[in-house]
Design a protein around this nucleic acid. Structure first.
Lengths: 374, 374
DNA sequence: CGTTTTGCTGAATCTGACC
DNA sequence: TGGTCAGATTCAGCAAAAC
């Protein structure tokens, strides 16, 4: 290793990302428009692709052309094939414009979601979760021939197995009353005031509820991130993005949807910063070493720590290590060794004798953080 | 179109079906054994193929205990291509031996279900529903890196668009307290007495709960129908078939599974009414998180909440947490902290300013439940 | 003997910073 | 780029043990 390399500060290799103008709507075909965007410029893609497949007599190919009859196998194969080609095309562009650590969400039903999921995997995306939107008030099955179709499926995927995607774990947990957010989400369908109508008719047949996009964006983006929706429709993605302080790009072909979308986004009020902030995971909080607490007098050298059941006792040394006689180790190592475990969080394992009982040393750390926070 | 085709009388072709010996277990490879069965001899196929999980290293719980994961060879495939070839092979045979009006069920997770669904469609099967098995007690996500994987997906498909499949609509409606059975089923995972163990260890890593098979068979077969399970495992399909008066054929390769399965089926007695009621899951009160009210717009981020005496004021944040400056916490935790109490019911502690005075946020929850209940 | 507490476990693609 | 190590991380159901 040369001298220069040793002297030069070790810098994390920045993922090559590009910038792009956001908060705008692109009129026209989604594949063509995506193709015009630079590589690695999008933080999240939310896609609600068409799945007008096998809906009976009136069948259109994704490219708009009409399929005559659907009564024989050839046509079925043809329509699946066409749909797969369409899916691969837009996914390829999506993958290119998505940042290395960006993620993609796609929503669909059993008509198309299996083909979309397969295509995602084939293109190299790494599926992180499939999410079930369990509809609180679905349309009943009028003919009594099947189960009530009461859900839709979303797929959440990263660029690859090792990508460092955004997941606001703590915010999701808080949103769910201090329980981990699960892969099944109970949310009402879009109706009432939220449902866009014109002349008494709904503007878009499958308008998604803002609550769905709210959760998706809160979970997987940071404020300021750019969210692209290649099948923008009436702009739910844009409206929620604006409300949550995210940037958005929408692509839409149909003029009446565009009109409704722009009007709607204009009316969406951004939240102010305090309302926008969310619960942070400790991971994102300042890191404090146990030794710092010793140095700053939060715990004295010579103090005795025990586990919750007082089975083991260890003494704090001046450098922040623990000792049980001759041996010394970090709070984590010592805890792991004693339990015969591969690892151990010393902050929660070790306790000190406070005036009101045994408390984990993590409480001291919290006190330290609160006292030293700006 | 030729003349002969027009002249020939259009006669509904009688479904040509064959008979086969049932209530037996075939030892060995599922594709080879299916190939040995005659055409159109099976009424329903239930398949729980390998999920192709591709797990990495070991996983430990936060308390250090080890997660006993699926490490069996039968779940290992080299690539998606290899998995797809395997899937197509067994589905081809499945389609051949299934009667024209028979149906197939396949269960999987996001690792494999999209590939299975695509293959089903490509082979010509007609998807009738995708069903979500919403697990009442899933394994949590220990690392806090994703959403808790709390469901599995089942696909129900017929031989084609026009096949006259069996669907016991009324039975399903009765099972669901006189409401149409939905596409999301809440059922516990297999545990307790039902879980087969030997020497303290589970016999099969992924034993399915009988309640799941019970609902599937009750919905889509008639008494006396023949149900084939090509991935028989420890024979849940066989046990439930016997209890429900259906016939069964199982195919399994692994001798220890076979032994457990035969013993189990032997012990399965036809279900009496008291046992039947146990199989049914109790309808549970919908649980609403405070965050859901924020997502759905029942209360806006930035809104101010107070206690009944207006001694404390807190602001609602985007993730449903409350803040009084820098600190954030859930409605319950914040209430407890302020009062110096060990716990607090945030729903009744916190109030919002309504047009007709101060009201507990629990009123909003009631409104939400009333609006979204089916 | 009834009630409460403690312990175990389940189809899981489960870390990240630094050297 | 692989090795090392600090440190962050869990919910519901059931069963066995303790009270």
């Amino acid at each position: 290793m040369g001298v220069l390399e040793r002297v030069a500060p070790r810098r994390k290799k920045a993922a090559a990302v590009n910038s792009v103008e956001a908060n705008r709507l692109l009129r026209g075909d989604c594949i063509a428009h995506m193709a015009s965007l630079p590589d690695a410029c999008i933080d999240m893609i939310f896609a609600d692709p068409p799945y007008n497949l096998q809906l009976g007599g009136d069948l259109n190919r994704p490219d708009g052309s009409h399929v005559d009859a659907v009564t024989d196998d050839w046509d079925k194969f043809d329509s699946f094939g066409a749909y797969d080609r369409f899916t691969k095309s837009w996914l390829k562009e999506a993958r290119r414009i998505l940042k290395p650590n960006g993620t993609i969400w796609v929503i669909g039903s059993y008509h198309n979601i299996f083909r979309v999921g397969t295509a995602l995997q084939d293109e190299g995306f790494w599926i992180l979760n499939d999410i079930i939107w369990r509809k609180a008030n679905p349309m009943p099955n009028f003919r009594g021939t099947r189960f009530t179709n009461a859900h839709e499926t979303l797929i959440w995927a990263s660029q690859g197995e090792d990508s460092k995607y955004t997941f606001n774990y703590k915010a999701m947990k808080t949103l769910n009353d201090e329980l981990q957010m699960r892969s099944d989400w109970v949310l009402p369908i879009c109706g009432g005031q939220e449902r866009l109508k014109k002349g008494g008719h709904k503007v878009h047949p499958t308008q998604k509820p803002e609550a769905l996009l709210y959760r998706v964006m809160l979970a997987c983006t940071k404020p300021g991130d750019i969210v692209l929706d290649p099948f923008f429709g009436t702009g739910t993605t844009g409206a929620v993005a604006r409300r949550l302080g995210r940037q958005w790009i929408g692509i839409e072909r149909q003029e009446d949807y565009i009109e409704a979308a722009l009007e709607r986004i204009e009316a969406a009020l951004p939240l102010d910063e305090s309302a926008l902030s969310i619960m942070q995971s400790p991971r994102q909080q300042p890191k404090v070493a146990f030794g710092t607490l010793v140095e700053t007098g939060y715990i004295a050298p010579g103090a005795v720590l025990t586990d919750i059941k007082r089975r083991w006792r260890a003494t704090v040394r001046a450098d922040g290590s623990l000792t049980m006689g001759a041996e010394g180790a970090s709070i984590h190592k010592m805890g792991a060794t004693l339990q015969g475990a591969p690892s151990c969080n010393g902050w929660t394992f070790w306790h000190y004798e406070a005036t009101d009982g045994l408390k984990p040393i993590d409480a001291l750390r919290q006190t330290y953080i609160l006292a030293t926070e700006p």
